[in-house]
């Protein structure tokens, strides 16, 4: 479970989709689950993500009561749709930086000298580490949802077709079948691509070319490695 990277557009899109028919992350009252996710969202969602924005503004209105809301905060991976992984914080710099984006932050929590020094040290370390390996090939990990026409579509054959697509810089990973209802399953498959060589457009074109099996395909998650 999770929303992908909540600091990326894709993550907010997941959040938006998830909240389309819900008022809160869990149940029917605001809870620590909302606060946990709220704190992970660094910037207010854009206007077109109106479900996410509605939720964001609503949770913001609980700012003063946030400590008294029921529930216990859990890891972000415990919330959200079952078919999306939580990657918030794993893609960026080190996760300690999360603490800097505290929207409820009060003035009392002044950063101590010690913490400041430590943070600067880490930043310097990170910068030097980054400088050492500049020639890295940009890669992305993709999670694709491939949907069949109906429950009679041979999913084994469908997967075979998808895996038969070969391109320079494209590596297929693990896959699983996820039930979507009425006995229909969709294929969820992971792959790693080199950004410069393979684009999602190309993948979509190639996969939907198997039109006997594939009804549609979309990208469930997109993460830079």
């Amino acid at each position: 479970m999770g929303f992908g990277d909540l600091r990326s557009a894709a993550g907010l899109q997941h959040l938006n989709d998830f909240l389309a028919d819900k008022s809160y992350i869990e149940g029917y009252v605001p809870s620590q689950a909302d606060i946990a996710v709220f704190e992970a969202v660094a910037i207010p969602p854009a206007g077109e993500l109106f479900h996410a924005l509605r939720w964001y503004n609503h949770i913001k209105s609980y700012e003063k009561q946030k400590a008294s809301l029921p529930g216990v905060k859990k890891a972000l991976g415990k919330y959200g749709p079952a078919d999306v992984e939580d990657t918030t914080g794993s893609a960026g710099t080190d996760s300690k930086d999360d603490d800097d984006i505290d929207l409820f932050g009060s003035d009392e929590e002044e950063e101590s000298e010690e913490a400041k020094r430590l943070r600067e040290e880490r930043l310097a370390q990170y910068a030097s580490k980054k400088a050492k390996k500049p020639a890295l090939v940009a890669k992305s990990s993709l999670l694709l949802d491939v949907k069949p026409w109906d429950d009679e579509t041979d999913m084994g054959k469908l997967e075979e077709c998808v895996r038969s697509i070969q391109a320079d810089g494209l590596i297929w990973g693990s896959s699983k079948l996820v039930p979507v209802g009425y006995g229909i399953k969709k294929l969820q498959i992971q792959c790693v691509v080199e950004d410069d060589k393979v684009g999602t457009d190309l993948l979509e074109e190639r996969i939907t070319a198997f039109e006997d099996y594939v009804q549609s395909m979309d990208v469930a998650a997109f993460n830079k490695i």
Binding site: S23, F50, L53, R54, W55, N57, H58, S61
Partner: peptide, 10 residues
Amino acid sequence: LEDKVYVTGN
């Protein structure tokens, strides 16, 4: 109701 949780908002 698109941008509201309750009829009056919050």
